[in-house]
Each structure stands twice: as C-alpha cells, then as structure tokens.
C-alpha cells in the first residue's frame, strides 16, 4: 500500500513498518505496528473489488472511463511537506492515518458528525473525514501530533491532562484541535449561536465554549472537564 507514497521525510515510518514485516525473524513488532500492517491489508482487500467493479461499469457505459491512475497532491503536515500519489477517493483523514501514519487523528463516524477527525487546515478546524486529500494541494495541516510532543505538551494538552478532560481518549485529539481553534475564533471575533449581541465582540464564557465545541462528541461524557480545561487555557491566553 505504500508504493505510491513519496514522503519527503527520509525517516519514514512507512518504510520502517514495511521492513519489519518483511523480516520473519523480527519478534519485536509492537501491537501498534501490527495494527497498522493489519489495517493496510484490510484496506487493500476492501478497495480492490470496488475498483474492479468501477472499471467494469466504466467499460460498459458510454461515458468516459474514469481513469484510475492515482492523483498527485502535495501538502504540508505539521510543517513538513509530503508529496503523495493517492486514489482520488482518499479522504484527508485516510491520507493522514493510512499513508502518513499520523494516527493521532481518529476516525469515528466518518460522516462529519462526531468531530474525532478534527484537524486544523490553513488555520481553520475542519472534519478531515469530509474532505478529499487531492483537494488540499498546497494546504498547511496541523494535527494533534503538530500541537505538542510528550515532552513539551501544548497548553491545551496539558490542561486536558490536568482537568481529566477525557476517559477513553478516542475523541481527545479532535477535541483538543477543536479547542485550540475555538480560542482563535473567539479572538478573531467570530460570533456563535449563543452570542447575544451580534455586533459586539463575543464573550469568552462556558456557554460560548459549549456551543462552539458542539461538533465534538464524547461518548464517555467528559464534557464538563473539557470546558474546565478550555476555560483555563482561555484565561491564560486572553
């Protein structure tokens, strides 16, 4: 699955995983790597029959045959440029997770309803599951991996830890990317549904934070702690 990936990062995780899986003597493979390899296999298996079906449909119809050659796209993720060749159907989310192995961004509903896939693209939070990778030519994407590192957490990451803003953690990368963008949107003066006066600067309070975070679901119900975490960071950066 990685043959089309032209990653400018020479220390590519893709290569690392592929090498290890080719070596039958290597028993140090981690659970995470195993999952990545397994997922890659599943994707190939699931994709091939539908490609074949589409090819047959194209040959049988009068319309122009969809060219199934991969499309080239180049965008920056967390400051690093990546040039990829992708099936046009690849979402930004799948490009990040399956091609760049940036698995911090999560796939929840895959239909823009849960917010687990939230990333910041060209300064704006979006659902990466509802955006085609090929439509991000020249974009600059920030994922949870680009906000902070385990050694140097972003203020929002540290606040989520401090306030216990999660239980299972699956929605957390999306919540944190969204929360960082929320504070930026308030700073820019973008109003929300609960802003009382459309012509004044929106206030920074719990009601505003709750409304603005409504596109990020948390099945564990950590909402009140998430609001506490964001409020603390807002107080610090205001």
């Amino acid at each position: 699955m990685n043959v089309n990936t032209k990653d400018t990062n020479t220390n590519d995780v893709d290569t690392e995983v592929a090498n290890r899986s080719d070596d039958p003597g290597d028993v140090t493979i981690s659970r995470r790597d195993l999952l990545i390899i397994g997922a890659a296999g599943a994707v190939s298996a699931a994709t091939l029959p539908s490609l074949a079906a589409a090819q047959n449909a194209a040959q049988n119809s009068a319309g122009p045959a969809p060219a199934l050659a991969p499309s080239k796209v180049s965008f920056k993720v967390n400051g690093k440029v990546h040039a990829l060749e992708l099936d046009t159907r690849t979402t930004l989310l799948d490009a990040l997770r399956e091609h760049l192995q940036l698995t911090g961004t999560k796939k929840g509903c895959d239909h823009g309803q849960c917010g687990a896939c939230t990333v910041i693209a060209d300064g704006r939070r979006i659902n990466s599951c509802l955006s085609l990778a090929v439509m991000h030519e020249g974009s600059s994407i920030t994922t949870i991996e680009g906000l902070g590192t385990p050694d140097k957490l972003h203020a929002m990451q540290a606040a989520f830890v401090k306030h216990d803003g999660y239980q299972c953690g699956y929605c957390t990368p999306g919540q944190i990317c969204s929360a960082v963008a929320v504070l930026d949107e308030i700073k820019q003066g973008i109003p929300s549904h609960v802003t009382a006066d459309l012509n004044a600067r929106p206030p920074l309070n719990a009601a505003e934070i709750r409304e603005r975070m409504s596109g990020n679901l948390c099945r564990c119900g950590a909402y009140s702690n998430i609001v506490d975490a964001i409020t603390e960071v807002a107080g610090r950066t205001a």
């Binding site: 823009g112 939070r125 979006i126 659902n127 969204s178 109003p191 802003t195 596109g215």
Partner: peptide
C-alpha cells in the same frame, strides 16, 4: 450560526 457545527461551517 444555528446550522451544523463550526467545523462544517468552516
């Protein structure tokens, strides 16, 4: 502002 989520409106 009453429609969808901020991510979708963006």
């Amino acid at each position: 502002l009453s429609g969808a989520s901020a991510q979708l409106r963006n």
